[in-house]
Design a binder for these strands. Structure first.
Length: 679
RNA sequence: CGCGGAGUGGAGCAGUUGGUAGCUCGCCAGGCUCAUAACCUGGAGGUCACUGGUUCGAGUCCGGUCUCCGCAACCA
């Protein structure tokens, strides 16, 4: 690791159809920024590259929905994302975008090279084509009836009602979302990256040569490599993206997954037009990808296969992927509005960047999913940043101003206790470095915080406010040491909390953070003047976090209300058709969970016939088995029996479907005899 | 039996190659008063999801069960 001459750090490219939220920050941007700042402080050459990912179908869908162009969509979000990263102190060397000229050129060249080397395979397949709009249809652009739950508005890739993944050809009565016309199957040619060809070296490279990767990363790769890798299409029929640079490929663009990671390369190239190849092709460069767990396979298998196929690039040395961050015990969801957005945080809690950085690091999902709550945010800020770190700094500075008019006193003879303290905080540097080198940011930050704990304890033990009355000389040494600890804190926290470190340095008159001096006891020379102490951190009030929680709840309610609209009324049916439906009531006599099924409950019903009726119903996620026992429900009695998970279900229990998919069983307003007809 | 990750005191997390369970917060008691009612000390609180096994000895290795999270054309 120390053999590398330089480190190239990439952070996952944010997709430019929305903002950046705390999950992205905790998973990718805060840890990568800490890592890069640390490298810079160590004086190691490092480059930190990121940018917006601006192609792909979802952006075109959003553009259509809002009646603007895809370019307008990405312009808007690119600006928001870029500004909020900058304001938050994510110190990219470059934050560019995949719609840039450099990127288009770089990605095209990359494709050309692979094409000419014969690294692709070609395949013709049949895809839906919209004859009115004269375009092939992306899966998402086709709607139709779901073959499973018969939701009439399922998409070609997924049914949002039953949650199943679909392929467009499965849809009943497919329609084009663009023109509304019926699409036809038409032949189209696409290029594929044959991952199967790369399987042997990938297997060795990861499973044998990179056993040091995080267990979540290694494990996920292993599960992929244990299967047979399949060729992956690298082109699509779409008009938004990078045109496929070969003849006969009109109307085709590079698939977004192929073009996006090349963005790392293009952005480096944009920043360093003459030297970028050193950073990407010299084996002395160490390449590190910071990503979230959903991107593991992509960055460990697919992108390396692309790089290897091209032939002249280095491969990543490590891919520290984080797990997910939940928010208030619920998963973060852009579509449900359940998120804390960075741009809003910066506006609503101005000047509080480091507080968020601290909490997201202290609670980083490094080994498993973690939870962010505003209460926890407040507690960590108040009990740790304010009470431990800020308070120690304040104590040392106030005492210095009080006794010595703001001048650093000289260090006298050291006592046994002084030496013990010095010994303790000298070790912090090596420990922080060891942890950061191992991508263990949570522990590293805790170690930095330890300096403040040492300081508080030192002051409590040595009691300068008492000693000053009996032995003023001794107090000089105590405060000298305390001030050295303060100076050390400003350096140790520099990678983690750059804003407050800068403020602290300004307060004590220290010009720059010199990492090499971390652990030293003479950073502030005797006679050096410090400034007036200001509070390094201020408490977060109850009202502040309560407002944030309320905002989340409001947003959720608003989103659910806005998202819900009654489904269009289906086409008329004959009255006889209705009469053929046999709906009845029944009383639930028993109910139990169906094994190995998440959604199914098995009901035993008294339908008045004397023989118990068994119905399996997919409502286990909304009712516990005993919740409905004794209740009257409505069911359809004349559906043909159907086996579900091996149990024969004799009918269907009726429920109302809420806007968020919750189910509420239909029951009767007053008790009725089991088996009563519903009409 | 699809695959991977995870399940440790009230909360959030550590536990590297197996050796009698740690940290931060919270709680209780005491101390201190320089400090943003902050700080310091002590204490209570865990059969390390459950269950078999290997071992002199397992949170740590192996088997089984349960639960949570994630899993290529939205999302870290």
């Amino acid at each position: 690791m120390t053999d590398f001459k330089r480190t190239l750090v990439t952070a996952a490219l944010p997709y430019a159809n929305g903002g950046v939220h705390i999950g992205h920050l905790a998973g990718v941007y805060v840890p990568s920024d800490i890592y890069v700042r640390y490298q810079r402080l160590k004086g190691r050459p490092v480059l930190f590259v990121c940018g917006s990912d601006e192609h792909g179908v979802p952006i075109t869908i959003r553009a259509r929905r809002e009646g603007i162009t895809p370019q307008q969509v990405v312009d808007r979000y690119h600006a928001i994302i870029k500004e909020s990263f900058a304001a938050f102190g994510i110190s990219f060397d470059i934050y560019s975008r995949t719609t840039s000229e450099t990127h288009h050129r770089t990605a095209s060249e990359f494709f050309r090279t692979l094409y000419e080397k014969g690294e692709f395979t070609e395949q013709e397949s049949e895809q839906y084509y919209d004859e009115e709009a004269k375009t092939f249809l992306a899966d998402r652009y086709i709607t139709g009836e779901c073959p499973h739950c018969h939701n009439p508005q399922a998409y070609g890739d997924q049914c949002e009602k039953c949650g199943r993944d679909l392929s467009p050809t499965e849809l009943i009565n497919p329609k084009s979302a663009i023109s509304g016309s019926q699409p036809v199957m038409k032949k189209t040619k696409h290029w594929f990256l044959p991952l199967d060809r790369h399987q042997p070296w990938l297997t060795k490279w990861i499973l044998e040569d990179h056993k040091e990767w995080r267990s979540n990363v290694y494990g996920q790769c292993k599960s992929w490599l244990d299967m047979e890798l399949r060729p992956r299409a690298v082109t699509r029929d779409l008009d938004w993206g990078i045109p496929v640079p070969v003849e006969g490929a009109e109307g085709k663009v590079l698939y977004v997954w192929f073009d996006a990671p090349i963005g790392y390369i293009s952005n480096t190239r944009e920043l360093l037009p003459d030297e970028w190849q050193t950073w990407w092709k010299d084996p002395d460069t160490r390449l590190v990808h910071f990503i979230g767990k959903d991107n593991i396979v992509f960055h460990c298998i697919v992108f390396p296969a692309m790089l290897k196929a091209e032939g002249s690039y280095i491969l990543p040395d490590n891919v520290p992927a984080n797990e997910f961050l939940n928010l208030e015990d619920d998963k973060i969801s852009t579509s449900r509005g359940w998120a804390v957005w960075l741009d809003e945080y910066l506006k609503e809690l101005p000047g509080r960047q480091d507080e968020l950085r601290y909490v997201l690091t202290a609670n980083a999902p490094e080994t498993k999913d973690n939870n962010f709550t505003w209460r926890d945010f407040q507690a960590r800020c108040n009990n740790e940043l304010v009470a431990v770190y800020g308070n120690f700094v304040n104590r040392a500075l106030v005492l210095t101003n009080k006794y010595y008019g703001g001048e650093v006193p000289a260090c006298g003879e050291l006592t046994e206790a002084d030496r013990a303290v010095i010994e303790e905080f000298r070790g912090v540097k090596a420990e922080v470095e060891r942890l950061l080198d191992a991508f263990r940011f949570r522990d590293a930050q805790k170690e930095a915080m330890n300096l403040a704990r040492i300081g508080n304890k030192y002051l409590a033990d040595s009691e300068p406010w008492k000693v000053v009355k009996t032995d003023p000389e001794r107090v000089k040494t105590i405060l000298n040491l305390a001030l050295q600890l303060v100076a050390n804190l400003s350096i140790a926290f520099e990678p983690f909390l750059p804003f407050s470190s800068a403020r602290l340095r300004a307060m004590i008159g220290l010009e720059a953070a010199d990492w090499a001096r971390l652990g030293d006891t003479d950073i502030l020379p005797a006679g050096h003047r410090i400034g007036q102490p200001q509070l390094l951190f201020e408490k977060i009030e109850d009202a502040t976090v309560e407002a944030q929680v309320q905002k989340l709840l409001d947003m959720k309610a608003r989103n659910e209300a806005a998202a819900w609209k009654p489904a269009p009324v289906k086409s008329d049916i004959a009255f006889e058709d209705f009469e053929r439906l046999d709906i009845r009531t029944a009383v639930v006599t028993a109910c139990e969970k169906v094994k190995k099924a998440d959604k199914l409950l098995c009901f035993t019903l008294d339908d008045g016939s004397g023989t118990p009726r068994t119905i399996v119903s997919g409502i286990a996620q909304h009712y516990t088995p005993d919740a409905l026992v004794g209740k009257t429900v409505c069911f359809i009695a004349n559906l043909p029996p159907r086996k579900l998970r091996g149990i024969e279900s004799q009918g269907m229990i009726l429920s109302a479907v809420g806007p968020d998919g919750t189910l509420s069983v239909i029951t009767t307003e007053a008790p009725v005899h089991p088996g009563s007809p519903v009409a």
